[in-house]
């Protein structure tokens, strides 16, 4: 049995799960009770495993994994994910210009507000903290890494977002530009999409496989071209995109942009 013990890197797991439980509870409590519990959470937090304070410079490196979906800093706009300006103190799922999952909106309505503790818990395993989230990120296991990212978010999120923070559709001349010029045939896209929805749920739910519903048109096109040209490496997606031409990719992007996450 000893052979099947979890790897050493998972040793902190029980403590992290207990903070998750505490915070889940916390959403059901009054603001005062919540503050008390967050105090307790701080004591038990994954952060006690971190050996150094959060370093925004290290956080910036780690943020590369987030960057293709989340803009932050001066004039940030929504993309595949919401912009992160003004994140601290923001109610979850509350940016009007962004199409969130129902699960995220519900959490916000139930009282989830982003702060260093809730962000820490969410980042550790997004789909466990908010089942049904559209954020297709598997999670950041290392508490120290999370601390760095949170420090970076804190440093950058005070900047003002763009006046019109709706999704930026002008992402310039780049990969997939020819497909971006085309007007996608939504009906063709709907037929082609039947191949996608065997894995990517039409509801926009992401459990183990990313949500692809409601993306900005050009972000969708760019992602498919990145698979097609091996910029992004994933065997299934490279195989799926290898035979898709500009017309097909434009059609798919046009169709998926018409869907609303549930």
């Amino acid at each position: 049995m000893l052979r099947s013990m979890p790897a050493p890197s998972l040793a902190g797991k029980p403590v992290n799960s207990s903070i998750f439980t505490l915070q889940t509870w916390a959403h059901r409590l009054s603001a005062a009770g919540r503050r008390l519990l967050f105090g307790a959470a701080l004591m038990a937090s994954g952060q006690i495993h971190a050996t150094e304070p959060g370093d925004p410079a290290k956080g910036e490196d780690l943020y590369r994994a987030c960057k293709s979906c989340h803009q932050i800093g001066d004039n940030a706009r929504n993309g595949v994910g919401p912009h992160l300006d003004g994140l601290f103190g923001r109610q979850a799922g509350s940016l009007e210009e962004f199409r969130y999952s129902g699960a995220m909106q519900q959490k916000g309505q139930d009282g989830l507000v982003w702060n260093e503790f809730t962000i820490d818990a969410y980042l550790e395993k997004p789909n466990a903290y908010i089942p049904g989230t559209r954020m297709s990120y598997r999670g950041m296991r290392d508490p120290q890494d999370r601390l760095h990212v949170i420090a970076y978010l804190k440093a950058l999120s005070a900047a003002p977002p763009a006046a019109d923070a709706a999704a930026n559709t002008d992402i310039g001349a780049e990969i997939g530009a020819a497909a971006m010029q085309l007007e996608g045939d939504v009906e063709y896209g709907e037929y082609l999409s039947t191949e996608c929805v065997t894995c990517h749920q039409m509801s926009g739910r992401a459990d183990g496989i990313p949500s692809i519903v409601g993306w900005p048109n050009n972000a969708f096109i760019r992602a498919l071209f990145e698979y097609k040209t091996n910029v992004r490496s994933h065997q299934v997606m490279q195989n799926m995109t290898v035979n898709l031409g500009n017309e097909e990719i434009a059609a798919l992007a046009a169709y998926f942009a018409t869907l609303e996450p549930q």
Binding site: R138, V197, T198, C199, H200, Q201, M202, S203, R205, A206, D207, G208, I209, V236
Partner: peptide, 14 residues
Amino acid sequence: YEESIGWYNGITAD
């Protein structure tokens, strides 16, 4: 493996 779980949820919904 985690992707396969996502696929299972996806295909059964489909």
